[in-house]
Design a protein around this nucleic acid. Structure first.
Lengths: 354, 354
DNA sequence: CTGAAAGCGCTTACAG
DNA sequence: CTGAAAGCGCTTACAG
């Protein structure tokens, strides 16, 4: 292994000078710089990050703490991760996905070892023990998501309010007046405090009321099967519905296939608009789904930037909320004129009319 | 920060003794042990991993190198990662997902910094520049996947041969004689040397020949749309087909929805058997797909164990190949008696018979 | 079984 | 602008 000592010797300078140059922490004359850089090149020197970390107390490693066992790592998560990693790399940090349980025990363990400078927290619960651990240990962190009490926490999150408002507005403008929200299943103890579900449902109830729409919310867990069952119930219990908002990705796929199976034409008879989906998932369906696109790339980057600013002692960024944006597809259309009593009808049959 | 020095002082021993105890590297009397352990507990001591790494030249960090930009991080990858991380934790290593491009440049950069003890390589190409980098730098590593030349490389991989043999055998035993493999698209330059595709297709040609079956292979990239198009072509060009093997996950979803859309009953008229899929993806369809289940959990664990054995200087594990296993669902059945010329037929109509 | 001391490869006041 | 030296918090021969 070639060390800074070797470089310094070959360049005829002290290791301090090499270090100053490398970190750009003190001015160095052009001549010295040239000699040192040549020596580094000749020797193929690479600075040892572990030694640097010990001396400077900064590892330049950011952990994206992910509760791998509790939450499936889906397409959306992959987006957050990828964009966060890119943002970190630009600032000369390593961002890695670190699997830790969401009870805070493993996270405390990890932080105690001094391996990471900061943490980006995903899948934040409304009252998250990991946040307590991060505070207690004085670790810089940023949330992607939000806890209930937010004072002084740097965080970025989806702007659920705007997302729901835009989605409802879009459907309303098309002429829909009978909407249903297929929400998350807040009765599930694992999710009763899961921010995205709570916030979306709250926003929907408020905004539907503002629009003077009847408020129909159906709980539904995030699986294709559950989505299909929700479609069944919906057709039974709310036959006048013309548009469906679906909170969860896999549930949305199920709602669509459920409706199709029941012979309902989408979007001819019913429009379906998922509220938080990535294009990869939308593309699982053909024709492709109209969706509100999860702002994963933006949030991953903003969250990481917010953390790095803390680490660098820069002024903190204000909390950022980013809405999902309408991403056009083929599953939302204007409602048809009131349908004939015959109902049903086989798929495709009326496509020309819609 | 409480250091080993603090613990030693409080326990009235030297820091060497604390270290010996902590690492279980030299015997310590029960009395001493008790004093030190009490001191550690009282002070809430946690060993600094960075200092330890510098002194011992081992960081205990394993990087799962993942080409995030080139490959989508899907459900299967998540499985590998989760099980690998668990295996590492058991052996007191950290396994983290480290995004690096698959050309070897970023990997070389990373290895030069001395932050990781070893690497688990995913999405291995048949001729992988990252393997060269790992060899040149003398980094211990294990492959999940295989390069063409394998001498001396510790690796684990899917047993494509057994997987295909079992899949074909299963269909054959049910009575199927007209099979088609919807393969990967090896014409795509990004994948022409992608091991799983090459190996699966090779195995299929060989094994179908052994069974005396007509050999029909259709290239198809891994998207739902491509799968649907493949279904269209297949119905046109090979109308006598009774069973379809599909290599890729998303293509498989497309094949099924494509067939359904064309009015073909699955499995009444056509059985569909994906060769490498995880149950999460199978559950996106309802009824759930019959699949050959990717052995992600096994491979993640075996790959990590193989690497850790190297790191610990234990005897290397022999390369391991693990087949995907049949995972029952509702999309494979015996072929029907030769179908009437009328063809088509609406879905569900004949279910009672199949 | 235990300790004193060197050393891992850097950074960073401090001095000039 | 550059250098000598202390120090980051551990591990590990070496000696006893």
């Amino acid at each position: 292994m070639v060390t800074m000592r070797d470089v310094a010797d070959r360049a005829g300078v002290s290791i301090a000078t090499v270090s100053f140059l490398l970190n750009d922490t003190k001015p160095v004359t052009a001549a010295t710089r040239a000699r040192v850089e040549q020596a580094m090149a000749e020797l193929g020197y690479r600075r040892n990050a572990v030694a640097r970390a010990l001396a400077s107390r900064r590892t330049h490693i950011i952990a994206m703490a992910y509760p791998a066992l509790e939450h499936r790592f889906g397409m959306s998560t992959a987006e957050f991760f990828t964009s966060a990693a890119e943002a970190a790399r630009k600032e000369a940090y390593h961002l890695v996905l670190w699997p830790v349980g969401n009870d805070g025990v493993e996270l405390r363990e990890l932080l105690g070892q001094g391996l990471v400078d900061g943490v980006v927290l995903m899948e934040v619960q409304l009252d998250d023990p990991r946040v307590d651990v991060l505070r207690e240990t004085g670790t810089p962190f940023a949330l992607i998501g939000r806890t209930t009490e937010l004072e002084g926490l740097s965080h970025v999150d989806i702007d659920f309010d705007t997302t729901v408002r835009d989605a409802v507005g879009h459907l309303y403008d098309l002429g829909h007046r009978e909407l249903v929200l297929v929400s998350g299943d807040l009765a599930d103890p694992r999710f009763h405090a899961y921010g995205p579900w709570v916030r979306t449902e709250d926003a929907y109830r408020r905004i539907a009321a503002e629009y003077g729409l009847p408020i129909v919310v159906m709980p539904c867990s995030d699986t294709t099967q559950a989505g299909q069952e929700a479609a069944d119930r919906l057709i039974q219990e709310h036959p006048k519905t013309t548009a469906i908002l679906v909170l969860n990705e896999y549930a949305a796929l199920g709602v669509i296939s459920g409706l199709t199976r029941l012979g309902r034409d989408v979007p001819g008879e019913l429009s379906v608009l998922p509220l938080l989906m990535v294009p990869e998932t939308a593309a699982l369906s053909n024709p492709e789904l109209t969706i509100m696109r999860t702002p994963g790339p933006e949030l991953g980057q903003l969250g990481t930037d917010a953390l790095i600013r803390q680490l660098e002692g820069a002024d903190p960024l204000p909390p950022q909320l980013v809405p999902a944006k309408l991403y056009p597809g083929a599953t939302v259309a204007a409602p048809r004129a009131p349908r004939s009593k015959g109902g049903g009808g086989r798929r495709g049959e009326r496509k020309a009319r819609s």
